[in-house]
Design a protein around this nucleic acid. Structure first.
Lengths: 202, 202
DNA sequence: TGAATTATGTATCGATCAACACAGAAAAGA
DNA sequence: TCTTTTCTGTGTTGATCGATACATAATTCA
């Protein structure tokens, strides 16, 4: 029975998307309630009634971000036939997604809450957990490569996952500095040049 | 004639160092004047008399940072006999410096002002310029390797410099997430595994 | 139609933000 | 000693922060 009382006059999902883009561009602390209500086109009481608080809105916005933005990055990781191609496509899709100029550059998860603030402890923890999850997804794909015999049994999947996740994080900063897709692709080429050395295959 | 009037009761450089460490740990927007005066042990009028404004203090703190912190990273780059060793030492010193637990993890320059804020435009520009300078230092060292015949004439120094600078930026985020020096060294190993592929030498 | 429920708009809350006014204190030059 | 100069401590400024109180509007249920 969610249809009691006066109905909402705005699209909750559309408002959440506006909030997500604003947090993405300006960060949690750099975005004020006044910024949010202006972008979402609603008053602050409506914001608090619909989302609870600024912190809860940010957490929901990051969840919406992971569900809607950059999904092609992670599908590329799973669908490629080999681990090598999976990682390369993963990085190439990252370069493409991070340099789109119709949205903020870089990744909301990677760039958010990097400074330990007393007020944003929950947000810092949440983003850290999401970054760790990304590392895990990379790790799983590499371990699959070992299981399938593509990679040697002594392949250090964890070290390699850490390396490629770190490269991806660096690409977020590079993108924020205005790097084009081509410039990001140079980093991808560098990272993939490491593959032979890591896999021990000439 | 700087010895006129009532002398300062605090050490300006020591206060600047305190401010630098606070900005390093909490970021520009996350650090308040109240935080600064508490850490520096002075009143706000003394802060403004000595440093001008919060923005000017931050700019001076970043300058102090570049002059005092992580200098071994860049001396390693210049002093190593080969470009390969230079880059490797550069990354290893980075791993060491970023994971010290008696100071904030990661790099103040890399992690600062990544979100475009209307109020911190000058700071954003300054940090971006400093990040570009770091890229230039890497580029110069690689070009020296080409000039000395260590690297082939068609070696893409710019792409390689971008790659290694990006890896270093990613290591800042990794360090902020609590990575140990050993974990950062795994990333260094990955990045150096790319060297042979980039240099075209087996 | 009337009671209950939920959302909106205005107006504002106390807290905190960066920055400063002012008066008193501590030094140098006369 | 007296003036000038500079720094320090207290207190406060207007602005903005995140978050609500309150009255009104719009809907469902009885």
């Amino acid at each position: 029975m969610p249809e009691r009382g006066r109905p909402r006059t705005f699209d909750r999902t559309a408002a959440l998307r506006q909030a997500m883009e604003l947090f993405w561009a300006k960060g949690y602390e750099g975005t004020s309630i006044a910024d949010l209500t202006a972008a979402m086109g609603i008053g602050s009481p409506s914001l608090y009634a619909a989302f609870g608080s600024k912190e809860a809105l940010f957490l929901e916005a990051t969840d919406y971000y992971t569900r809607t933005e950059g999904t092609e990055i992670w599908t590329a990781l799973d669908e490629a036939p080999t681990a090598c191609q999976a990682v390369e496509n993963f990085l190439r899709q990252t370069a493409r997604a991070y340099s789109q100029n119709d949205r903020p550059q870089g990744c909301l998860i990677a760039l958010g809450a990097l400074h330990q603030d007393s007020s944003s402890g929950a947000i810092c923890d949440d983003l850290r957990r999401r970054r760790a999850e990304n590392h895990t997804l990379l790790l799983r794909r590499l371990e699959r490569g070992v299981a399938e015999g593509e990679l040697p049994a002594d392949f250090d999947s964890d070290a390699a996952a850490t390396f490629y996740a770190t490269v991806q994080h660096g690409m977020s900063i590079q993108a924020r500095d205005g790097a084009s897709c081509d410039a990001l692709m140079a980093t991808v080429a560098g990272a993939m040049a490491a593959w032979q050395g890591l896999a021990g295959t000439a």
